[in-house]
Every structure is written in C-alpha cells, then in structure tokens.
Amino acid sequence: MRNVTRRYGWELLLVVLIGLAGIWSSTLSPYFLDPVNLLSSAQFFVIFSLMAFGLFPIVVQGEIDISLASTLAVGSVLFGQLSVAGVPLVMALPVVLGACAILGAVNGFLVAYAGLPSLAVTLGTLGAYRGLAYILAGDVGVTGITPDYLQLASTWVGIVPLAVVMVLVVAVFFWLLMARTAFGRYSYAIGNSAGASLMAGVPVPRTRVLAYTLAGAMAGLAGLVWVSQYQSARGDNADGSILFVLTAVVLGGVSIKGGSGRALGVLLAIILLGTIQTGMKLANVPGTSQTLVIGALLVGSIGIPRSIQLFRQKFGRNKPRASVRPAATVA
C-alpha cells in the first residue's frame, strides 16, 4: 500500500482534487452529476486531450512544442476544404493526418538534426502554420461541411459520445507506447540525459523526430474533431489553446524538464481541468477570466511542489540526515 502511494502519489492527489472539484461543481448546479451531462461536457475537452497526449512524449523527452494548436488549425481547414470538395472522409483522413504529421516532422527535424532549441523552432512554426491555415482557409473560412465528417460528434456509443471513447483509446495507446515499447523507454532515457542516451546507442534524433511527427498527427486528428463539433473551419481555430494543453501535461505530473510522467496522470489532469472549467462555466465565470485560473494552475502545479521542496531544504530538520541516508541503504 505504501508503495502504491509512493509511486502513484501524484495521480492519487489528482483523483482527490477531481473529487473536490466535482463536489464544488455539483453545489453550483444539481444537474452537474447527471451522467449524461458529465459525458456530454466531456466532449468539449476531446480536442485538448488529443493534443495533450501528442505533446506528452515530447515533454517526456525534455522538449516542447507550442505550435500544435496551429497544426490543428491547418488540419481542420484541410478537412473542411476536402469535405467541401467532395472527398470522402476515408480518403481525406490519411491525407490530412499525413500532412499534419509532416508539419510535426518539420519541427522534429529542425530540433533533432539542425540542433535548434525546440521553443524557438515551434514559436516560429506556431506563427508560420497559423499563417498557412489562414491562407488555406481564406477570409471567411470553410462552412458547409458534409455529413460524413460530422458523424464523429453526433455518434454515441450507448450514453458515451464516440469522441470521448476515442480519447480513451488514445490514452491507452499512449500508455502502451510510453510504458511498453522501445520508443517509450528511449523517450524517458532522452529526457533524463540526451547525451548519455546517445552514448548508450539510443537513436536520439530519430526518436525525437518520431515524437514530433506523432504529435503533428494527433493535432490533425484533433482537427477532425474540431470540424465535426463546430461544423466549420477557420484559420484562427484553437488559437491560444496551447495553454490548456501544456497545463494538462504538466499538471499530469510530466516533468517539464523531461524524463518522467505517465499517461494516466495526463488523463486525470485533463479530467480535473475539465471539471474545474465546467464548474466555472456553471458559476458564470467569463471565458477570458477562466484563463486566469488555468494559468495559475500551470504555474502552481510546478511552483507549489518546488516551493515545498525549497522550504524543506531551508528549514527541514532532517537536512543533514538526508545526505547520509542513501549511502546507508546502499551499504
């Protein structure tokens, strides 16, 4: 039992917080806890979740990608245009996911092979891809999406929306990918020390490019969800949503410096953020002020553990013992 709390302490904390946020939200509205309401509110967070899972391996590798929302915009506009042009979804899906994967791969190549800092690269492509989306969408955007593209949002599996099922599938996929495959092992190794991983024979650049490519494809998939939910596509789609996405990943216990974090944490963080945001909606907090709370959570989720650590270092009583203990256990 103690092992479980130790290993999954962060996740347990998230579960407790979700419970508290749920209680708070249900005091605001009696309808909050209605399962149908819960599941249909969950639909609003599908787009963020897909991007967050895409970002997850990149952050584990110690890098970042802030261009994902722009990639989503390109994907959604492409889906819209192909739909209007009469291309069936089965054909459009590989094309658009491929295009978005290429956009991600461009980031990956610039980071992994050209050795540029990921923040600067994706800051540049954040603007560039956004511009591309605007150019593709034109001034008015794309409307008149055909019904086959809209099915994703209107199909329900029992009482569960199909899009929510998709998120669960994606969550399991990323859990397996990061916990059970060589790619996952490599990612954690790179995040802990890229130099040491390279010397140990880990294909560092290839693993990095793969992570960015995958993230691009996930953003493309999120673009499809966007099109199906909003029934239109414009160049400014999802502008600024990277804040929510990055907050979800970091709040999920994925260290921003790389090397640690689990898919379960990311999923729980999304549920927590979703519950809080739904609660704020019920409490009539305006959308722009909601960003204040999300931003505070982003800063707090890293800052509070760090300040506790600092506080302990400074005032903790067992400071001298801490340095001896590891040696003693080894002996």
């Binding site: 990277i242 804040l243 907050t247 999300i294 931003g295 505070a296 982003l298 800063v299």
Partner: peptide, 10 residues
C-alpha cells in the same frame, strides 16, 4: 517558457 505562459494568462 512555462512560467511566462502561465503569467501571460494570469
């Protein structure tokens, strides 16, 4: 980047 993205929204 994370800190100022957070303060941006705050």
């Amino acid at each position: 980047i994370v800190a100022t993205l957070g303060t941006l929204s705050i």
